[in-house]
Design a protein around this nucleic acid. Structure first.
Lengths: 200, 200
DNA sequence: GAAAAGAACGAACGGTCGTTCTATTTTCGC
DNA sequence: GCGAAAATAGAACGACCGTTCGTTCTTTTC
């Protein structure tokens, strides 16, 4: 009867399936998800898994949404405890790094961004929406840093968000190819230079 | 009898197949390649296509290699006509941008990097080798810019290569999601700031 | 405890996958 | 032009794909 947090069996197993699906998508990408493998991973029948999502695409969308939610919970939310401005911005970067290490072998959101780059369809739209949303959050935090006087008044928030994101994207990129630790050092160093050059 | 540029039918059709495969991989990624689709695109039979490569993996490797060769031919080679140092570095970025626009819908090399990020196998190794090779070329050009006195003597070439690559990676990323032109402006602006901050 | 509702199963569908094998066609040196 | 050799076609393989359907098991409701 609780509409806010349904505790029924259906919702529970659906979440369990999604959790496994998310883990699988981290390694093989959202496009690499298959209902057969997922059934095996959940020790259910294919039809049992399938019944929880009307189609493979809906499953993929659900995984994408779960990924976005987890990203926000792990990166944005804890950073909100830091004071507005540069400290919060640094906290975002820090938690983002932790996220990158956790998903060193592949982040669902980034592989999805690459997979649905130049395509069309519901998945592409979902990726664009999610990416735009996160970029907006970044810009908001940057705007606060400007308002607090931590960054120069002439700072272009969109541009800085682009540049920070670029280095974090690069961290993910290099971590999977050349190892996490050096990539992390390089990315953090680059972002430090960035903050320094934009400082008021 | 010409071992350098074999003009036999075999080599010719093999190149034709690879050309089509490359085009397909641009849209769907190297992992999205299928021999069935490729046979359709080349108006050949599946087995006819298959015979030119011992396996799907070898086909994928060949496509990857072709991509790397084309990248070098289109980005590095023409930039070598510019004088050493910062001008050549700028030329590289310029041709790289042209490459990004040409493959706005997806670059084989980058989607491969994302697909084989945290995996193992011949394809992963090929991606790592190719990425490392390109990074080395970048560092070489940066080293020359330092030697010419265009960049500060304390410049960390590996770090700067990391940062340039990050913005070009971001260009590809954003171009597919939010449109090429704005992404290009942002990336070039970021790289200009970069060069300015490293200048001697 | 019977009846209704919900959830998972298992088999089957038409397709496509990569790959193998055997023919058939095409090419090319002579 | 002929015959050897290379190149392509075609059919078939087992495996897996997403999806559908009817059945069975479990849970809830009265």
């Amino acid at each position: 009867m609780n509409a806010i947090a349904p505790t029924g069996k259906r919702a529970a197993t659906r979440e369990m399936i999604l959790d496994r699906a998310y883990a699988m998508a981290c390694n093989d990408g959202v496009e690499g998800l298959s209902i057969g493998n997922l059934a095996q991973a959940t020790e259910m029948s294919k039809s049992g898994v399938f019944a929880h999502f009307g189609s493979r695409e809906d499953l993929q969308l659900a995984v994408l949404e779960l990924g976005a939610r987890r990203f926000m919970e792990n990166v944005l939310l804890p950073a909100l405890k830091a004071p507005r401005g540069l400290p919060r911005l640094r906290a975002i970067v820090e938690h983002w790094c932790a996220w990158a290490r956790r998903y060193e072998r592949g982040c669902v959101l980034l592989s999805a961004a690459s997979e649905y780059d130049g395509r069309e369809g519901a998945l592409h739209d979902a990726v664009v929406r999610q990416q735009a949303g996160w970029r907006a959050e970044l810009e908001k935090a940057i705007g606060q840093a400007i308002a607090e006087g931590h960054l120069g008044g002439e700072t272009d928030a969109t541009q800085l968000a682009f540049e920070i994101y670029a280095f974090m994207l690069m961290l993910h990129h290099d971590a999977g190819l050349f190892g996490f630790e050096e990539a992390r050092r390089r990315a953090l160093s680059a972002i430090d230079r960035l903050f320094a050059s934009y400082r008021a």
